[in-house]
């Protein structure tokens, strides 16, 4: 990942003449775009395999529930980032913790959905469903792990005002994971 890459290198990179933040920002956006294409391929193959049919009845309450949790965790992530940018570390950490917990809740929700699924992976809809939710859950879990690292480091005072790129980048990653679900939720549950 393009985070926090080069304090040691900054002295003999162009660090002295311009800030690294715009460079890191462009790098992480390119990463998002590229990762999004992988999700797009999976979503496209879902429509290729089963058209706009949804042969099974899904648990709509659960779907709406986990979707809401993930959406809400984007708000707490945003609040955390904003708080850190203004030096409000205590609030920022509380919001990070809330994000982490909601992320974990989402992952558990997906796990529960898998356990009650009455279709199998070899079914065409099951193929799309398990690979899409699985790949997304992998991103959620990795995002939670990243946020835990940020949370612990924030407790040690590593992110004073003006040096919050690590928080910002991980929060951006979290929003990205949310954006993917913005498309996957209707694709899997509503269409």
């Amino acid at each position: 990942m393009a985070v926090a890459s080069a304090p040691a290198h900054a002295e003999h990179g162009h660090g002295s003449t311009h800030s690294r933040i715009p460079i890191n920002r462009m790098g992480i956006w390119l990463f998002f775009f590229s990762d999004a294409l992988l999700f797009a391929m999976l979503a496209a193959s879902r429509f290729y395999l089963t058209g706009t049919e949804r042969p099974h009845e899904l648990n709509q309450a659960l779907g709406l529930g986990i979707t809401s949790v993930l959406l809400l965790s984007s708000l707490t992530a945003y609040r955390a980032e904003t708080a850190f940018e203004h030096g409000n570390v205590a609030h920022g950490r509380a919001m990070l913790l809330a994000t982490i917990l909601m992320g974990a809740a989402f992952a558990i929700g997906v796990g529960f959905e898998w356990s009650i699924a009455h279709w199998v992976p070899s079914d065409p809809f099951g193929t799309a469903f398990f690979s899409m939710t699985g790949m997304h859950a992998l991103h959620v879990v990795s995002g939670v792990l990243f946020l835990i690292v940020v949370y612990v480091r924030a407790g040690k005072g590593h992110f004073p005002v003006g040096n919050t790129w690590a928080v910002t980048s991980m929060v951006m990653y979290w929003h990205f994971v949310d954006v993917v679900w913005v498309f996957f939720y209707p694709t899997l549950y509503l269409v």
């Binding site: 393009a2 890459s5 080069a6 290198h9 003999h12 990179g13 162009h14 460079i23 790098g27």
Partner: peptide, 8 residues
């Protein structure tokens, strides 16, 4: 002096 992301 180097690539944008040397560690990457």
């Amino acid at each position: 002096r180097d690539m944008a992301f040397p560690n990457l």
